[in-house]
Computed example of a mutant assay.
Amino acid sequence: MARTTPATLALDKAGFAYALHSYDYDPDAPRVGLQAAESLGVPAERVLKTLMAQVDGKAVCAVLASDREVAMKKLAAAMGGKSAQMMKPADAERITGYRVGGVSPFGQKRRSPVVVDRAALAHARVFVNGGQRGLQMELSPADLVAALEARVAELA
């Protein structure tokens, strides 16, 4: 497994500290984030999933705990829009440059505005996808928000 991805390069360039963790990715897992948390031996609320959505037709990246579901009305409101919907997997892969199951909020091919769920800030350290299936990056939620220039809002 490569330990250098567009996500790690983006964080290195921005100067934020992180730790990499590999795990056995299960493509058949019903919920990839929960499987990652179990494999890493950490609570699911600390392993954040990266979801690509559209708010009023524009790409948006939502980051929230793997055991939570995004409320589309809250996502739209966080972005100042009227409606939100999940992006089709093929569109998410084309826009981010990552494969579904390995989408990171960092180093995306086309940068989209990012919203991080407020609940993520309750933890000292969180995990986000490192840019490939089976790779997670551990960092502080404050660094996550700062490096992504993300908005923070209630998403679930």
Rank of each mutant, 00 (worst) to 15 (best):
L9G: 10
D12P: 00
A14G: 06
A14F: 10
F16A: 11
F16V: 14
F16H: 13
A17F: 02
H21L: 06
S22C: 10
Y23T: 03
Y23D: 04
D24N: 13
P30F: 02
P30K: 08
G33C: 04
Q35C: 02
A36D: 02
A36P: 03
A36I: 04
G41N: 08
G41D: 07
G41K: 02
V42I: 10
E45W: 01
K49V: 05
K49T: 03
L51V: 10
L51N: 01
A53W: 01
Q54D: 01
D56N: 03
G57N: 01
V60N: 00
L64D: 00
S66V: 02
R68M: 12
A71D: 15
M72I: 05
K73R: 14
K74P: 03
A77Q: 10
A78C: 11
G80T: 06
G80A: 10
S83E: 15
A84V: 06
M86I: 11
M87L: 14
K88F: 14
K88Q: 13
K88H: 14
K88R: 13
A92W: 06
E93L: 09
T96L: 13
Y98N: 05
G101S: 11
P105M: 04
F106E: 09
Q108N: 11
R111Y: 07
P113N: 11
V115R: 03
D117E: 13
A120N: 07
H123G: 08
V126S: 08
F127L: 10
G130N: 03
G134A: 12
M137N: 02
L139S: 04
L139T: 05
P141C: 08
P141Q: 02
L144Q: 06
V145Y: 00
A146L: 05
L148A: 01
E149C: 07
E149D: 14
A150T: 00
